[in-house]
Design a protein around this nucleic acid. Structure first.
Length: 285
DNA sequence: AGCCAGGGTCTGC
DNA sequence: GCAGACCATGGC
């Protein structure tokens, strides 16, 4: 296992690191997470677990504001997956020409190591929904049921907190038909009817079946939770866009050698075709 | 105004 | 197994 060297500088503003082939914007706006908001000058603000963060990128320099070296080393370094050798992974998966093209457009994305419960809940909310509204529902979820962290800053509510709620309590979310799904997820995770803590040890298919015990969790939502919430890089969420891409690009099947990192490839392809929808049509000609 | 959204469930073949 | 209606709400 190659050890990644990371240049870290402590400045008055916070912690600054140097990283090649990293896109903060693509990583935070590709639809894998929903609690980072872009402010002025490519600065993002978000909350992860109980930690607020302001972060920005200027070329290859990424600055973590309002944090400490200790928090960076023990938390953010892991969260942003800074010790995984993405170049080595790309060397493997870009042997496929489609992934190579997608990588040229979206290769700065990294898979965040998100909180499992938050990721599951977020992708339950994501079904048949658009990103701005997903963000709104999640914000109301935190504002109404999370724990206060500091001024105007709330944590993502725990399963046990939400399990105490009635469906009427969740009406403030305006989540539509997803309200009952959120409640069912909270109840089954809190009661350990769904064995959340054992999922990391399960084979992919078994883990998927475990999550699908929850109402409103089908294959796609389960795979999103596994990829983004459990860092299962071999999970391959098949949403409407990826289905189109598979139909157009991979009639003979997705390349075997890329499957162990299918989740990363999926993100590159997803982001690429969403930014360039014409790529799906040009291929037909 | 109307279409659509990082889907899932339920029903009927 | 697979197609099709239906689900709540609001962004664009």
């Amino acid at each position: 296992m190659l050890v990644i060297q990371l240049k870290i500088i402590e400045t008055i503003n916070g912690i600054q690191i140097e990283k090649q082939n990293f896109s903060l914007r693509d990583t935070l706006e590709c639809g894998q997470c929903f609690r980072f908001q872009r402010g002025a000058e490519n600065t993002y603000f978000g909350v992860v677990n109980t930690k607020p963060l302001r972060i920005s990128q200027e070329k290859n320099n990424i600055t973590f504001f309002n944090t400490t070296m200790e928090d960076f080393q023990s938390f953010w370094r892991e969260y942003f997956d800074l010790d995984t050798d993405y170049e080595a992974i790309k060397d493997i998966i870009t042997q496929d020409s489609i992934i190579k093209t997608a990588c040229e457009h979206a290769g700065g994305i990294r898979i965040l190591k998100q909180n499992s419960w938050e990721a599951l809940c977020s992708f339950i909310i994501s079904q048949n929904n658009n990103i701005p509204r997903i963000q709104g529902i999640i914000q109301r979820l935190c504002d109404n049921f999370g724990e206060p962290i500091d001024k105007e800053c709330w944590s993502f509510p725990s399963p046990s907190r939400l399990a105490k709620c009635s469906l009427d309590d969740l009406a403030v979310l305006r989540a539509g038909f997803r309200g009952k799904y959120i409640l069912d997820a909270a109840q089954k995770v809190a009661s350990e009817e769904v064995k959340f803590t054992q999922i990391p040890q399960m084979p992919l298919d078994e883990a998927r079946q475990e999550l699908m015990k929850i109402k409103g969790v089908g294959i796609k939502v389960a795979d999103c939770a596994l990829l983004f919430g459990f860092y299962r890089l071999d999970a391959f969420p098949m949403d409407t866009w990826i289905k189109k891409a598979m139909h157009v690009f991979y009639k003979d099947g997705f390349p075997q050698f890329a499957k162990p990192y299918g989740g990363i490839a999926q993100q590159y392809i997803f982001h690429y075709i969403r930014k360039n929808p014409q790529a799906l049509k040009l291929e037909h000609i």
